[in-house]
Design a protein around this nucleic acid. Structure first.
Lengths: 252, 252
DNA sequence: GAAGATATATTGTATAACGTATTGAGCCGT
DNA sequence: ACGGCTCAATACGTTATACAATATATCTTC
């Protein structure tokens, strides 16, 4: 195996991208846990030995473990050591965990689960927004849609306006738990968009459907808003499926 | 202000209940953040001074801050210090955060949000379970229902069987993101149950509705399963509302 | 062979020192 | 008087070391 005669990364070089040491280490370990490189039940080396392998202090390692533990990915017990927990206990909807998931290319099964959850949550949020929105919120939604139209979804600015539009819908639903959930989902969707647009531009312009959703919310028509959101997600799903089929045909 | 002539808890004695020091400290700070005692934007004392006030080491304090930071409750920056973040960034669906929320009595608004979320997620999960369940899963559901009938919901064993029944439904839905979300929701529901049963027993036996849900799932009837779950949640909501009205009439 | 005491390895906690980045005040120039 | 720049103080970030607590494993004893 490894010759253990000095500090070595042993393949675990922390991808230090302007982050704090414990954060980037947590990110790297989290990524490897989610990718399956460290499977559930995997036992890490002792803190002292592991910190020497990674060439950092035990404190930094412990703080990284605390972060991962807070997200349910690992569990530390005296004498027993620190090991990867059962996936059922992972906080898969945590923003960081989602980001780590997308650090490696996500599996088709994960994307299926993600779109199924979107189809459950977002139409309901749209319906609630139709019932509870304020005039100020619908006005800002209109502004966001205008900006989307102006810049298009192929630009960074256009995508930001898209995100703002959906954020406003969530906010208008007036449910803090729903907001937390939706912001996590939207973060994940943003990641899929990055993957989706890797090779080509969007196949078609989804602006008419966005306008329809906005109209339904302004009118206070909960059912129409629900259905309009279903249509939007169906469009996104179709795009993603096309993109994935292209991945199969032309991998790497 | 405080006279700062020695180690003092300054009101922040860590409720040390068989937990590690950093965990119980994170719990205590998290509870106070969620209760509003430390409002968004609140700046904590410097780590050295704060650790002296709390009469513990800086390491333990920092690890507690890392836990809270991982759940989005606080943010640390060099020179600027550690402060409570904006509530929009809190991981309100995190199991620990939910538990901290219920450490103080939850607000009616929170319960409203919780039941609204249940009404969105759980019927959809029941429908998915009807479509995707295995025979083994429905058999175990039947076992759980039998145990509920035997022991009743007033016993610890009966409530455990109830939880197992709902867990099996989630598992049968075969969606990892949905599982994560549902387990968080169920944890929150378990807390409300504790509050609910503080004063009196359940008003009536929900077993027939549980059986109806089980029958629908076994039959693979997604729509019937969805509707049966809606009925179950409506029952729970009615119970909780009754309990809360009693709280208003006889506070404390 | 089972049950209890002991040994030991590993995490948990404490302390101290130094590095580093950010902030904000002060200075200088325009 | 105002704006931009320099610089130092401050708080987090990181490292190192020592010791305490604890759970597991081993060994002993009945």
């Amino acid at each position: 195996m490894d010759d253990h005669d000095g500090p070595q990364d042993s393949g675990l070089l922390k991808g230090n991208l302007n982050l704090r040491l414990h954060s980037s280490l947590a990110r790297e370990l989290g990524r490897r846990i989610l990718s399956g490189e460290f499977p559930p039940g995997h036992l890490f080396p002792g803190e002292i030995e592991f910190s020497h392998q990674l060439d950092l202090s035990r404190s930094a390692l412990r703080e990284a473990f605390r972060i991962l533990s807070a997200k349910g990915l690992v569990e530390s017990r005296p004498k027993a050591g620190t090991r990867v927990t059962d996936p059922a206990r992972w906080s898969r909807l945590d923003p960081d965990v989602l980001a780590w998931q997308f650090a490696s290319e996500p599996s088709p099964a994960f994307l299926r689960d993600l779109f199924e959850l979107r189809m459950i949550v977002e139409p309901a949020a749209a319906a609630a927004a139709a019932a509870r929105h304020t005039e100020e919120q619908t006005r800002q939604m209109a502004d966001a849609l205008d900006e989307m139209t102006t810049h298009g979804l192929s630009t960074e600015q256009g995508r930001a306006a898209d995100q703002r539009f959906h954020s406003l819908i969530i906010e208008a639903a007036r449910n803090q738990l729903l907001s937390t959930l939706s912001s996590s989902i939207m973060a994940a969707v943003a990641w899929t968009t990055i993957f989706k647009q890797r090779r080509r531009a969007l196949p078609r312009d989804p602006m008419p459907e966005h306008r329809a959703l906005h109209t339904a919310i302004v009118a206070g028509d909960a059912e129409a808003a629900r259905e309009a959101m279903v249509v939007l997600i169906d469009l996104a799903l179709a795009d993603t499926e096309i993109s994935m089929r292209e991945d199969e045909q032309a991998p790497a």
